[in-house]
Design a protein around this nucleic acid. Structure first.
Lengths: 238, 238
DNA sequence: GCAAAATCTGCGGGTTCCCGCAGGACAGAC
DNA sequence: GTCTGTCCTGCGGGAACCCGCAGATTTTGC
């Protein structure tokens, strides 16, 4: 069993390497890659089936790398090891994990024990391990009234990209008015209508404000927007 | 000479601790704090004059912490040790460094030698040390036509916050039209007018698009927006 | 001190956005 | 069947936005 480590921080990479060897004494080679692009290449070259992957890297972030890797070998087992549990990341990951694939998501702040346990569970037992905190985010977003459903989320992303209502309507095959309806729902869910202090009105540009709030709530983050941007360039959407 | 380390990542913290002891054998205590808030408290309690500070932390980011610390003791020597050289960070730092204070900015990707050298230069020699790459960003942003001057930048931030033209005008004591002029300059500098592929027009909402581009170019980042948000809440600006 | 350049400002228009209202399509409940 | 709820859609109006034009003010260079 070979393991590939994709992580841009040298210290973390060394730590991971050690942790992997300790948790999986039976494993063979442990390969390292320092960004997503190299990770993809290594995965292809070395026929690796077990990957520990950081999200948030410079060249290509973990989600994009994982997506291409999974496209080539859907049975690859990937353990995501991330600093944050932004809803944007969580959603991004669940969006790309193929049917029946096994993966894990543990935070860097977790104890070494948890990490090693997750390594064994995912790689040996082929069991999904999702950090409690991450699980919480998933629930909240999938769940009920407060979270966003997929349609709303996609429209939010389009808005964050800077598209006009009309453009979004075309891309999503909806009428202008429908898009605007969705937007209104978004505005409500994001609490965009609150006025700071005295009853100031017309203080906020709702559209831009929504993006700001989504960013600060980590519903969106820079890497999610970049991913969407790339998608947009590839398929200008009609 | 006591040194305070403010860094949320445990591995990095340990590494820093070691590096500090190695580079400054004459130093006394080495204190650690795991986020900005605790960092501020420790700095106050222990009367520390030498700080190694991470940017990008959860509770309070390095820039805000540094600002309050410098407000209390402008002669504190701070070495910023960061993963990224986003223009938003660089600008944020130069914005808060007090007159004549000594500080440094080295990237985590730099070699251990560079880090130790910077530690000695800043703490012992009281000499500013700015990473070459960071210096480059500074030049570009301060420099000429392509960069943003302070007024433009502040307006960009206000837009990213989701404020209306009118609101910005009030905050900045300008007329509505002047704000819009500034916006037009921003739009040009950010290349917002480019149309993807075929001559699509009306494809982008310029205002929101500007924010997206600024984010992807790292002129803005989430923490800069959060800082601005806090400022806004404190002084609703008239 | 003066001319050139850059900024600030008001006006006016075309466009986009925000949103209330109302009608139509389709689902499930009784 | 009817009733209720949800979603899509068009219409219309008020507000905000983008921007060209032109005059006033300030800054800059020499």
């Amino acid at each position: 069993m070979n393991v590939l480590i994709v992580e841009d921080d040298a210290l973390h990479r060394a730590f991971l390497n050690e942790a992997v060897r300790a948790a999986l004494p039976e494993c063979g080679q442990v390969i390292e890659a320092e960004n997503g692009v190299k990770g993809e290449v290594q995965a292809r070259m070395a026929q690796v089936e077990h990957i520990v992957m950081d999200l948030q890297m410079n060249e290509r972030n973990g989600i994009e790398a994982a997506r291409t890797i999974w496209r080539e070998r859907p049975d690859t087992k990937i353990l995501f090891w991330s600093n944050y549990s932004d809803e944007a990341y969580v959603r991004g990951v669940s969006r790309i994990v193929p049917e029946g694939a096994t993966y894990g998501y543990v935070l860097k702040s977790a104890s070494e024990e948890r990490l090693k346990l997750a390594l064994r569970s995912v790689f040996v037992e082929a069991q999904c391990v999702i950090d409690r905190e991450v699980r919480g985010i998933q629930q909240k977003s999938l769940g009920n009234s407060l979270g966003f459903n997929d349609v709303e989320y996609e429209i939010l992303v389009d808005v964050a990209l800077g598209l006009t209502d009309k453009a979004i309507a075309q891309r999503k095959h909806l009428s202008l008015r429908s898009v605007q309806n969705r937007l209104q729902q978004l505005y409500e869910k994001l609490d965009v209508y609150e006025t700071p202090g005295q009853g100031r009105e017309g203080w906020f540009n709702l559209r831009t404000r929504a993006v700001a709030v989504a960013l600060s709530r980590k519903v969106l983050n820079a890497s999610a927007i970049e991913r969407a941007e790339r998608d947009l360039r590839q398929s200008p959407g009609l």
